[in-house]
Design a binder for these strands. Structure first.
Lengths: 199, 199
DNA sequence: AACCGACTTGACCGACCGGTCATATTGTTT
DNA sequence: AAACAATATGACCGGTCGGTCAAGTCGGTT
């Protein structure tokens, strides 16, 4: 049966966009099934629960992210500190494009889910945290490269990377609250001024 | 009937803690009523809809916030830049205390709600945005004071204040995702290094 | 004492929620 | 061609959702 893997994928795709542009709680299993043209029974053949679908969505989206604009922004051919400009740029255009299509700025799927489910589901929270750790690592490596290259003073790259990630998530949060991607454009550049000094 | 205002207040109180520690969608009207020892009918006597309750909760919590730890942290007797240390401290202890009691770090009610409802309810989003604008103003005034006092170089205080707010919200987001208030402690100090240069 | 408006009661509504299940229908293996 | 597991179907479950409503019960005013 060739459609099997496809069915599972259609469910994930339908859920991915909906979870991202609305919220986990607001999107029901029935709606996902209808949109993916799949029966309820088939849904529960592939996913033991809605929660397990969320896990699959997070995993896939993290992969999209890592191999998508994160990979582009963190292009090793670019000077390390310049990559952060690309990161902000990518976030800006992504959010802007989504808002122009949907009318509402969706924000970061991981940030959205993290604030929605963290207090209620430790496994989902851990999954989300793992995604952030991955992103932090990417930033940290870039910082280390910049230090090695001499373009910035030595710093606590681990904590600095986490702080920069926090800043990015905070910017996206404000942008979503204002429904305006310009926040990223106006404030994005300051990400490079965030430093945690080496202990 | 003296209990009237009290009933309304009990509803708001019950909702406030629940919305904060869980989410808007996850807390039902019935649960709020049960907890406040109020009948459904009474609830809908005071609030036309669950949404209107959310508005009341946001307004009241914003007031708690402004007159509570925000007011304490932004003590005019303190040197301006020192106030940010107090702000971070206050956030840290608040989150830590809540986590120690509830087992889960609740994060910022406004940030939580903003990411949950912004794409679905423009009025709620605007309310939340107004709270952030108020907070930003507070930070901006402090920055202006610091500049006037000569303790920091002149900067774009409006955008810098917004950037600092974004950073704070981002820190709380990561802290919630890790269920660990130490994030604020580790990374909080960098809030003072965030600058947007004057245009 | 009659009345009024603010508040309370609790049963009730249809819609929807996440999830289950027995029963097909497939493609693959033997 | 028989057998088997993977997948699909769609009716069905109890429970909960936000919200409504008619019928009260009060205190205060006239």
């Amino acid at each position: 049966m060739q459609t099997a893997i496809d069915t599972r994928q259609r469910i994930i795709d339908a859920a991915k966009t909906r979870f991202h542009s609305r919220s986990y709680a607001d999107v029901g299993v029935k709606e996902i099934c209808d949109s993916a043209v799949v029966q309820k029974g088939s849904f529960y053949h592939f996913f033991p629960s809605k929660r397990d679908l969320a896990i699959a969505v997070i995993e896939e989206f993290a992969d999209d992210w890592a191999t998508g604009f994160i990979a582009e922004a963190f292009d090793p051919k670019l000077p390390p500190m310049e990559r952060f400009d690309y990161l902000i740029d990518a976030a800006y255009f992504w959010q802007k494009a989504a808002r122009d299509i949907q009318g509402h700025l969706p924000g970061c799927l991981f940030g959205n889910l993290a604030l929605e489910v963290s207090t209620q589901d430790d496994i989902l929270r851990a999954k989300l945290n793992a995604v952030f750790i991955m992103a932090k690592k990417r930033i940290m490596e870039t910082l280390d490269e910049a230090v090695a290259e001499g373009s910035i003073e030595p710093l606590d790259s681990d904590n600095s990377a986490e702080a920069m990630l926090a800043y990015l998530e905070g910017l996206i949060l404000l942008a979503k609250t204002q429904n305006n991607p310009d926040v990223l454009y106006r404030l994005g550049k300051a990400i490079k001024s965030i430093r945690i000094e080496t202990p």
